[in-house]
Design a binder for these strands. Structure first.
Lengths: 274, 274
DNA sequence: TATTACTGTATCGCCAGTCGATACACAAGG
DNA sequence: CCTTGTGTATCGACTGGCGATACAGTAATA
């Protein structure tokens, strides 16, 4: 079974609903809702449609409980049976939620035309991502004219510690928070050049801080070069990031920075503080 | 507040979780899960970030209950507060679910390269949509070179009764089911030319049935022309649809059909019965 | 043909957990 | 001042969900 993303591109470190989060000492915390979402998020990183027991295991719930919740979610359209291979998969109803999320997101709406402008200028892949603790989640993704497969990876999460956009985000955080993010990341060595040393990463953040953007070479995928900048809100806190990605075979880092950097900074500053 | 979709493009007939669905006579139906999803789907068609009371009203739940569920979903990242305007909006965690849904969908994976091929041939917007009862939900959407805004409307639902893709879907259903879908649709007159008569719609379906594709002119938006074909599974039931959309100013219906039809049929048949 | 290990599905009693009433602090607008 | 909206918190009554337990089917062992 092929996948819409190459194997190397599937990061599993998206944060699932953790078991410990349930049963917390919070009178307002309704466990049933958490259980429901645990079931829904049981599909994280799954390779195949999942059987009931697999869902239960992934959700950390009893098989009986899982059964009833799955049954309910199925009736509501949030879970379906896979038509061929037997097993459960997320249902179409989910798509409604993502559409609502994008529609109500104050950042995405004004960003789209600006991203299109940027793409027109630089003619490489342009991404807008939102920040989720340790990772960036693609919210919009414009492929370059030269089409690659990644047309629709909205929802994919990439780590902050080893991406250009992530470094740009770090540069806008107070130092202690930035270091905290880095430390809590499980720094995997995706390529030989992936930075995992805290100081090295902070140095990249510093670079982003003074230039407004920062370039990452081969951090997640060999042969890939990225340039990223962070979007901040009215309080100056980072809320999103934009990055442009290209192939190292087409650019040197210096050329890439000179060609794309200014346009990127301009796009980001148009979105800042809104 | 601008929106990522023009006002005329926001169909509200996406099916929310209905109140009647809760409290049904089903011992396996867990109400708490339904309540949770009612809260999550309360954002359907919302124009602004919603206050607690608005969420409660939209979800059809008590304010207290809503409060606790929102509280929980917020801790889990499925709901956030809008940073500027006060109010709740769907959280980033939602994006994980959509990504899982797409990744585990057996149809989307093999479809992407085929859609790219098709787009390369016809050079107009190409959509893949999944069927959700009365509507089609965009699952992949490839904009044409000539960029329009609609870069990322994954998750948008459009009605079946008045779209080319929808007619193609109808053509693959048994007649009684097709008529049932049409009757249950609340047939709105989007444009002057929108078909709302059952027989007229069935005729379009018949056209789709013999040609393999069908053309729709100005059904949802003035000036828009679309051509659609349905994808069927091994049992011959429709599971998805592909449509190509262009501007009436660029094509006559006949030209459009001759130019795009064969390529579309070929793409669809490559996806059929898998 | 048993045996085992999976599926998905169904039933039911007990008691944990949720509902919803009720209340409070605060802000905006008349 | 009152009124009407926020968001948040507390708590007792009672319901509704948990999870043990069971069963039919299927597929891959022996």
């Amino acid at each position: 079974m092929s996948d819409i993303t190459p194997r190397s591109l599937r990061w599993r470190d998206s944060a699932p609903v953790r078991d410990e989060e349930i049963g917390r000492d919070d009178p307002l915390f309704v466990r049933a809702a958490a259980r429901t979402m645990q079931v829904l998020s049981a599909f994280h990183g799954a390779e195949h449609p999942m059987s009931l027991s697999e869902v239960a295991r992934a959700a950390g719930l009893d098989r009986s409980t899982t059964q009833r919740i799955v049954h309910t979610l199925r009736q509501l359209g949030y879970i379906q049976r896979d038509p061929r291979d037997s097993g459960y998969v997320p249902g179409i109803r989910i798509y409604d939620n993502i559409f609502d999320a994008m529609r109500l997101n104050r950042l995405i709406q004004p960003a789209v035309p600006l991203l299109l402008d940027l793409r027109r200028n630089v003619n490489e892949r342009v991404d807008l991502s939102l920040i989720d603790d340790l990772r960036l989640v693609y919210a919009a993704r414009l492929p370059p004219k030269r089409e690659v497969l990644h047309a629709m990876l909205v929802g994919l999460g990439v780590p902050i510690y080893c991406t250009s956009a992530g470094w740009a985000v770090l540069s806008r955080l107070p130092e202690d928070e930035a270091r905290d993010v880095i430390r809590r990341s499980d720094r995997k060595q995706y390529t030989a050049r992936t930075l995992i040393d805290e100081e090295a990463i902070m140095e990249k953040a510093a670079e982003a801080s003074c230039q407004g953007y920062v370039i990452a070479e081969e951090q997640l995928l060999p042969g890939e070069i990225g340039i990223g900048a962070a979007v901040v809100n009215a309080e100056g806190r980072p809320v999103a990031a934009i990055n442009v990605t290209a192939l190292l075979s087409d650019w040197t880092a210096e050329e890439f920075g000179r060609a794309v950097g200014p346009a990127l900074v301009q796009t980001v500053s148009a979105l800042n503080r809104r």
